[in-house]
Amino acid sequence: MIFWRAIAAAILLVTAPALLAGEIPPDARRSGYSFMGPDTRAMQDDDTSNPGMLFVLDGEALWSKKTGDAGKACADCHGDARSGMKGVAARYPAFDKALARPVTLDQRINLCRANHQQATPLPYESRDLLALSAYVAHQSRGISIAAGDDPQLKPFVDQGRDLFMQREGQLNLACTNCHDDNFDKRLAGAPITQAQPTGYPLYRLEWQTLGSIERRLRSCMSGVRAQAYDYGSPELVALELYLMSRARGLPMETPAVRP
């Protein structure tokens, strides 16, 4: 009896993805959507009133627009995004063999521009980059997040996790202090979420525009009075990667709407 239990336990240990201390178990993971009021949910739910869809619309036009010295459009290599890009964003950030590190969807778009279109990179948070990234990620809407599975990503996921656990700033708080330990409580009037990155780039009412997860992370860092990492820095990429792997199984919502 004890023997069988031991085996069962051993099997559980091997098959269940190792859950690190303090992490939210898969069946308790909740999108930021579930923390919102009915009016903000309604804004996200209806594509004809979701302001993020304006950017998706822009992205759709950019997808087939020829650009750069090569005079090529995204569509010239990738074809119809609705089939070709389906599920792609749910696997990002992904490992890039040539660079030997993970790259975000934004970085992948700019790598494509540099390598295949011979075009200048689009600046972080620029309308065109957000629009393209929203258009690509929108093709994964409803698909479960599956980022971080590639074993080559392991050290980068670990780095992101360490950063998530690292106290920083004058207020000396780590992401985990709020988003693992205190979600569902209220910081002043605002509910604390689990920080599941299911809908990026997303339309934040506070911003009144679409923004990337990097912008959101930087604003949290400012919140604890820490020096925010630069856009595209290895730290922000690692954090995004960890957050996406932490959200595994949750469906993508791009473009989400959040307060």
Partner: peptide
């Protein structure tokens, strides 16, 4: 509701 954290 006032945002608890806004950005610089």
């Amino acid at each position: 509701t006032l945002a608890a954290c806004t950005e610089e």
